[in-house]
Amino acid sequence: MIELRAVSKRFNQGRPNECRALADIDLRLERGGVTVFTGPSGSGKTTLLTLIGCLARPTSGRIVLDGQLLSNLPERFLTEVRRHTFGFVFQQFNLIRGLTVLENVMLPAYPLGRPHRALTAGARALLERFDLEPKADSKVEWLSGGEAQRTALARALINDPAVLVADEPTANLDSRLSREVLGLLVFPGGVVAAAESGRQPSLRLSAGAAEIRAAAGPRAADRRRSDGANPVFSGPETRCHHLVLRLAV
């Protein structure tokens, strides 16, 4: 379970261009579900995902993972948590150019020192699962958008993470590819925190996923915390669908 308690995030603190991206966020994400953050551009979805995924630290507040306080952990331990608990699918794919699809997928496992044969077999199994095996030895810059996104998805799963975090995973894809990728995001036994800008009209939520809609961007930071039930996103305008929904297209 991931829990955010009164979490705030400010950028450029103490400078004239200081910006409050998030303020007083209380949120609880249970294991085994699918959570979707939706909201307009600039509403803090990506910031929220970076905090959940330990890619950044909150300016204030606490983040707790399965009872362990993460926000105060030294960087080394935080990396350990990030490596074993989270898999990331970035909006821009963030694949390493010049490397092959297989190498990109194996990359997160390099620091673990797993035997090469086992690691390669695991990576190939993932590529098989995502229908990318024929592209295993292709350089990633030769891939189509959908293939690149599927490669990013395979890479996110190589260390068998408990939580898959996907930031606008369909933002750069057409509707057919969006359907394809969203179909793959059904991750058995894990939490998918997928940020969607809500620009895809075809996206519907169905049983199995919780949608949390972040309203009105940084202004949400100034709103009072709601004491609503789990999961809660701050502000009276926040629409919390307490639905255990499954993401579907």
């Binding site: 890619l55 960087e75 080394r76 990396t79 350990e80 990030r82 490596r83 074993h84 990331f88 970035f90 963030n94 390493i96 990359l107 997160p108 390099y110 620091p111 890479r155 996110a156 260390n159």
Partner: peptide, 15 residues
């Protein structure tokens, strides 16, 4: 950017 990606996917500063 590459270093940022490597960190994000689980590489330590030491790595």
């Amino acid at each position: 950017r590459e270093i940022g990606i490597l960190k994000a996917i689980g590489w330590e500063t030491g790595d």
